[in-house]
Computed example of a mutant assay.
Amino acid sequence: MKKITYFFVLLTLVFSCSNDESDRSDELETLNPTAYNTQPLLTKFSGTGLSYEINGNSVIFTTQDLPDHTSPYWDTANALYEEYNGTNPDWNQNPGSIGAQNIVFTISLKPSEAVNKETTSLGPIGIARNGVVFFNQYAAGNNPLTGEINSFDQWLGHPAMTTYHYHVEPTWLTQEFGEDAFLGLLSDGFPIYGPMENGETVTNADLDAYHGHTGVTEDFPDGIYHYHITNEDPYLNGNGYFGTPGNISR
């Protein structure tokens, strides 16, 4: 009789835990997208020449796009100038340099999935928490990044003319805040996180066609759709924005 009772209790516990996990999964999958609110993330933005203001359900970022870290692309008279000391044996400096920009993003604070997805364009598609802009997975002419990668500095950014930007993991930020940390926002308002989640490396196979998924993050314990940076193409973004992109002016 004792063995039967013990088995019944154990079966009840297993069934209960299984139901809890299933309910949690269902809850994330059916999370009302109108519940998304990224305003709490704004306090994490800080950078030279970076400011923001809230206008209704939108945030307006104005950035000079100046990295807060060293680079060989700074003028040699700048205190942040540093010769390349990264690990790429094929590194080749491009002819660009870091210069102050005036880039304005108007981004929704309450993003939701777009019915009709839009492709990303060349140029800025999002903003990192230090004010540097993100570009998509293509070089000029919508070509693969294969050659351009060799011009990325020691923090994996580089300039297009004078517009400094990241295509891939901004290692300055992941080194400072962690590989699972919030890194910035794409123009559609959805957050970008680093290449780790729950102690595991995120791969492209873990993500959808837009290079994101819905799940719990440190900032959103109830779950939110978010992008991840991975170490393989498309690195940050896939087949366009998951949500509706806001306005970007330069």
Rank of each mutant, 00 (worst) to 15 (best):
S97K: 11
D75Y: 05
N116W: 09
N150E: 12
L173I: 13
T201M: 12
F182R: 04
P170M: 11
Y52I: 01
E53G: 10
S51F: 00
T63V: 09
H69A: 07
S121M: 07
K44P: 02
I4E: 13
V133H: 01
Y84N: 02
V115Q: 13
D206A: 09
S97V: 13
N92A: 14
G246I: 01
H158M: 12
G215S: 10
T76D: 11
T34N: 13
E176Q: 15
K3T: 12
G184M: 02
N78F: 10
G49Q: 00
S46V: 03
F61T: 08
P234N: 07
V115H: 05
V202H: 01
L50T: 03
G131L: 06
T171Y: 10
H211M: 01
D75N: 15
E53N: 08
E179V: 05
V104P: 05
I192R: 00
V132D: 02
N57M: 06
F45M: 01
H69Q: 08
W91S: 07
G86I: 09
L66T: 05
T214H: 04
L173E: 08
W172Q: 13
A77N: 14
M1V: 13
L41W: 02
A77V: 11
E53V: 06
G243W: 11
H211W: 05
G223L: 05
P234Y: 07
H228N: 09
G157C: 09
V59G: 04
I98C: 09
G147Y: 12
S51A: 06
Q39R: 12
S71P: 03
W91I: 08
T106G: 01
E218V: 07
T30I: 10
A35M: 06
S22C: 09
N130C: 07
V216T: 10
E53C: 02
I192L: 15
P144M: 07
T38M: 03
P191T: 05
E113P: 09
Q175Y: 11
Q101L: 01
R250C: 01
D180E: 09
E29S: 12
S51T: 11
S22H: 11
L50N: 00
T76M: 10
D68I: 04
Y84D: 06
